[in-house]
């Protein structure tokens, strides 16, 4: 009886559908992660500025993405904007925009935090040695800050991958939605189906997120010495 569910995984094109769903999940998450890392580092460095005029707009941007749930952002950009302005974006583009904006905001705070947390004398000594600002960042601050920002950064990336589950709400058919579709069709014939399908989805997420956290631990250990 317990085994009856697993056969559904191999029925028709169910397996391909789940993997295609995973591909959608990964495509959105990874493109957004790359954009977030690049933009986040830039904005993070800018945000270490002590100029209030520079700080406040970025602070506002960060807080907007922290306070307002991602689901609300998705709804606003996918449903509300097209209803009020003549701008109709596809669900996946909306997903990319929201996830990149969110990731950039969070990433910039991680980068800013790790630069600021460096002892003040690091910057002061660089200047005393006659390094230019660019050189100071390039050779002194960024390498040390990177080390400190790896754990929260990996944390953010896995969070972004998992949060893609929200995308079903704007009609993106990602891995969890495919799973639900398969479960609902087979629920009556195979009562244990949800266990197998969600188990498989769990495995897929694990296969993606676990190596990331292992990788970060290895980097940390390597750089610790």
């Amino acid at each position: 009886m317990l085994n009856s569910g697993i056969s559904v995984l191999f029925e028709g094109v169910n397996m391909q559908r789940l993997l295609l769903g995973l591909l959608v999940t990964l495509r959105v998450a990874l493109i957004a992660v790359v954009i977030s890392i690049v933009m986040g580092i830039l904005i993070g460095i800018i945000r270490t500025s002590k100029n209030k005029l520079v700080q406040i707009p970025f602070r506002l941007y960060l807080e907007l993405f922290r306070i307002i749930p991602i689901l609300v952002w998705l709804f606003v950009i996918y449903y509300v904007i097209p209803a009020n302005f003549d701008l109709n974006l596809s669900a996946e583009v909306v997903a990319l925009i929201v996830f990149s904006l969110w990731g950039t905001a969070e990433m910039s705070d991680i980068v800013r935090g790790s630069i600021i947390s460096l002892p003040k004398h690091q910057a002061e000594s660089s200047k005393a040695l006659g390094l230019s600002v660019a050189q100071m960042y390039r050779y002194v601050l960024i390498p040390q800050a990177t080390k400190r920002s790896i754990p929260p950064m990996i944390n953010l990336i896995t969070r972004m991958i998992k949060t893609t589950a929200l995308l079903t709400m704007i009609g993106v058919v990602e891995v969890i939605k495919v799973g639900q579709q398969i479960i609902e069709v087979n629920n009556l014939d195979h009562p244990t189906i949800s266990f197998w399908i969600y188990g498989f989805v769990f495995l897929l997420y694990f296969v993606i997120c676990f190596p990331l956290s292992r990788f970060s631990r290895r980097l940390e250990r390597k750089w610790a010495t």
Partner: peptide, 14 residues
Amino acid sequence: FSDKPPFGYVDANG
């Protein structure tokens, strides 16, 4: 719907 059989669902062939 894609998950409300028998009204609207996706079969094993997608």
